[in-house]
Nucleic acid binder design. Structure first.
Length: 426
RNA sequence: GGAGGGGUUCCCGAGUGGCCAAAGGGAGCAGACUGUAAAUCUGCCGGCGAAGCCUACGGAGGUUCAAAUCCUCCCCCCUCCA
């Protein structure tokens, strides 16, 4: 089974330039294939997981993935799919971000023995000579054609800066560069990159007289139409420092019913026969599939140990039904109820004396970060959303006392149904 | 370069001297109902607090008892013309 078949049955493919040829290519040869990642932050988020998984699949099938960090194009800003010009980051920021992303990608891909490559387009883009570039590369681009590209057309309504207008040329040049220097025959990426990819293929044909290929992934939205990963508030990062493994796990557990099967296919390596089992589960039983999804996804990003801890914490906090042995047999999630006390719930340590005096509940909620401010904590408690050890807090300044500590020296706080926090007493 | 129109709280978007911490929608959070789901209904949704105070309407000044609202200068964006 070729990686193309894998992509196909797992729902990775949105568009391809030439299905027949790409199918053959991936079946008959081992190729080099690249995806670009923008260094706009120190970490990638869930939105980048589809491309990452795609590269991992490529590698598993013996192809060589090339992860391109857009250290050079990041200086420009990609207008595709954006309604406004992106904020331009400084060179230092971009460089720093690029380093972070490199480290992050190493967790998914094996870069040893050139089994995968990491390149940064700053290496070749920042030394370009403007006049030469215009003469050699720019001459192949028709402005008329560029303006008709969807990615630019949207922006023409609101205004498009010249700097961004050049983005397509640079990305096309990237492809050409990798085609020539790394024998890279295919580019993959989100569907919003389609126009840019075609520009690269075009450029390669004009300048090298040879054929290159591209494949795009669907732009993931939840079945509610919300985009995944990147929201102002709830960005789910791949970096454990920005989104804890526990929260990461929780994100997947809370996925909408309608998305479970699709996400199992995209974000885990479970065999498709098992993934399809999700379809048989209805109502509350579907939560078992969500546990499996969360466990496997967390395992891939944070490792098995973290996935286990996150699962334990979830079992402890919610009354989770264990996943039946017959379901998803390839998944390594524990099948029995979990006994021991162990938790990766976010926690905080308070001193014995503080609790002897008692801490007003709203202050503690604000301090733990469960609430963003004391005002928010008051409102939360007033509305009945604050709990200590599963008991609803009645008054906003109710004192949290030492007497509420359990045998393990812990006091559990809860905001609503889903957000838990552990206060440890020292 | 010229003319016109804009920049409002996380986003969209009302507001043109006091009734404005600022309508409405979205997003978010909580409650009810549930299955840690969705949908629906309800409440909340700048900060600190008892009242009240502070911080906010692109930036800096000014007028006024009082300014998101008026004036001056500056920055940025859009449209049309060159």
């Amino acid at each position: 089974m070729s990686v193309y078949d894998v992509f196909f049955e797992r729902g990775f493919i949105e568009q391809v330039t030439d299905e027949g040829l790409i199918r053959e290519l991936l079946q008959d040869r081992k190729i080099n294939c690249y995806i670009g990642f923008d260094p706009t932050a120190t970490s990638l988020h869930i939105g980048s997981l589809v491309p990452i998984m795609a590269l991992v699949h490529m590698q598993q099938h013996g192809h060589r993935p090339i992860a391109l960090i857009g250290g050079g194009t990041g200086l420009i800003g990609d207008p595709s799919g954006k309604t406004e010009m992106r904020q331009i980051l400084t060179r230092e920021q971009i460089n720093f971000n690029a380093q972070c992303l490199q480290a992050q990608l190493s967790k998914y891909l094996d870069f040893g023995q050139r089994k995968a490559l990491m390149v940064n387009n700053a290496d070749w883009l920042t030394t370009l000579n403007y006049i030469e570039f215009l003469r050699d590369i720019g001459r192949h681009f028709s402005v008329n054609k560029m303006l008709s590209a969807e990615s630019y057309r949207q922006r023409l309504e609101k205004g498009l800066n010249f700097i961004e207008f050049n983005y397509m040329l640079l990305q096309a040049y990237d492809f050409l560069y990798l085609f020539k220097h790394q024998d890279c025959a295919m580019q993959m990426g989100g569907n919003d990159q389609w126009g840019n990819m075609l520009a690269g293929i075009d450029l390669i044909r004009r300048m090298e007289g040879r054929m290159a290929f591209s494949l795009t992934f669907p732009l993931l939205t939840t079945s509610q139409g919300h985009k995944m990963g990147k929201t102002e508030k709830g960005t789910v990062w791949l970096d454990r420092g920005l989104t804890s493994p526990y929260d990461y796990y929780q994100y997947w557990v809370n996925v909408e019913d309608a998305d479970v099967e699709r996400f199992l296919a995209l974000f885990t390596f479970l065999p498709m026969e098992e993934v399809r089992q999700a379809r048989m589960l209805v109502d509350a039983d579907l939560n078992m599939a969500k546990s499996v999804l969360a466990f496997e996804a967390t395992k891939i990003t944070h490792g098995e140990a973290e996935a286990l801890s996150a699962w334990q914490a979830a079992v402890k906090a919610f009354h989770v039904k264990p996943v039946e042995a017959a379901l998803f047999p390839s998944c390594t999630i524990p099948r029995a109820a979990f006994q021991e006390e162990a938790s990766t719930m976010p926690s905080l340590t308070k001193s014995h004396q503080d609790l002897e005096k008692g801490i007003p509940a709203f202050e503690l909620f604000a301090e733990t970060g469960l609430c963003a401010s004391k005002g928010e904590a008051r409102r939360l408690i007033a509305q009945g959303g604050g709990y200590v050890n599963d008991t609803q807090i009645k008054v906003f300044d109710e004192k949290i006392m030492l007497s509420q500590m359990d045998a393990h020296g812990e006091i559990r706080l809860r905001k609503g149904k889903k957000h838990h926090f552990m206060v440890r007493v020292k």
